[in-house]
């Protein structure tokens, strides 16, 4: 948390995919065929166990709810009286609320992530490269916001939004999250790995501060930026407490809030609710598969030095 904590730009955060350690010499036990097969079996079982809840929800979604409820315990492990149209019905539910909520969630998430990136990059740059009064204090104050999450301040924030007449607005969903202490911390740490000489040289060459930030600092710290953007995306996409507080208009519901409303459905339509849950899950799974390395780096920042 101090200035000495500067890390190299290409911070060697844990690499989930691909172990880079030198392989041990000699025949290691795991090279034996029977061992390898044993590990494959164990890892397959563990993987399936982790994924089992999702599979069972899919089974539930595809089933006729009434017939499913009457089926025997073992029979319930596979779809009963399959209804393939459940996903399209989930989109038709409440006059297309799903598509609408999807759109609201996407817009809000995008706005939050862009806002956080802009405000964090500017601040982190100032903390890393510019000398100005009260710098250390301001940085400490920014990090101290980690102690004041929305969970603590929510009651007063709701009042602020109400006083501004912003209930049910996009700005109410976005503005409270337009800056992030952990983003400033991560990016400043990345920036302080950039050699001062490079900064000075670029400045002498006539690079403006903004020019240096956008053209040199951010590209040089791409792994940190990517990790931050992805973690901030996941957090914004799954945000629940705040939209629950400031959104009453069905037209402005985000996906998690729509799920809450759909959970009040009747048992006969529970399969539509299950399908909606799976649909809300799909975008983040795609993100995870494509950007796994960056997400892991963002989430484990601080875990391993």
């Amino acid at each position: 948390m101090t200035d000495e904590s500067a890390e190299p730009v290409e911070s060697d955060a844990p690499v989930l995919v691909g172990d880079t350690r030198p392989s041990s010499t000699g025949p290691s036990p795991s090279s034996r065929l029977s061992h390898r097969i044993g590990w494959h079996i164990l890892l397959s079982v563990l993987s399936l166990a982790v994924l089992a809840p999702l599979f069972l929800v899919l089974v539930n979604a595809l089933s006729n709810p009434v017939r499913y409820g009457q089926a025997s315990a073992t029979r319930r492990l596979l779809p009963v009286d399959v209804q393939w149209d459940v996903f399209s019905r989930a989109f038709d539910e409440q006059n297309g609320a799903m598509a609408k909520a999807f759109l609201v969630s996407a817009i809000v998430t995008a706005l939050i992530v862009v806002a956080q990136l802009v405000t964090s990059a500017l601040a982190a740059y100032a903390y890393a490269f510019i000398e100005f009064p009260f710098k250390r204090l301001a940085f400490a104050v920014s990090i101290a916001t980690l102690l004041l999450p929305m969970e603590v301040t929510v009651l007063a924030n709701v009042r602020t939004i109400r006083d501004l007449g912003w209930v049910n607005s996009y700005q109410s969903l976005v503005l409270p999250f337009a800056a992030a202490g952990f983003g400033i911390f991560l990016l400043r740490q990345g920036f302080s790995g950039i050699p001062r000489d490079l900064h000075e040289a670029a400045r002498l060459d006539g690079f403006g501060h903004l020019h240096f930030l956008v053209r040199i600092a951010l590209p040089l710290t791409r792994p940190v930026v990517a990790a931050f953007v992805l973690v901030s995306t996941l957090l914004a996409w799954s945000s629940y407490l705040w939209p629950r507080m400031v959104i009453t208009d069905p037209q402005r519901r985000t996906l998690p809030i729509l799920l809450k409303d759909l959970s009040l459905t009747t048992a006969e339509r529970s399969n539509v609710f299950a399908a909606a849950g799976l649909i809300a899950f799909i975008p983040v799974v795609i993100l995870l598969i494509v950007f796994q390395r960056h997400i892991v780096r963002g989430l484990t920042a601080g875990a391993v030095k």
């Binding site: 890892l43 709810p65 048992a267 529970s270 909606a276 899950f281 995870l288």
Partner: peptide, 28 residues
Amino acid sequence: YQTALSSTIATAGAVAATVFFVLINPVV
């Protein structure tokens, strides 16, 4: 395997709750 084992990272609280709403339900 590592991707599968880390897959629940991306789950939102509301989605995880939905999953278990469906899994442990006395009727359906």
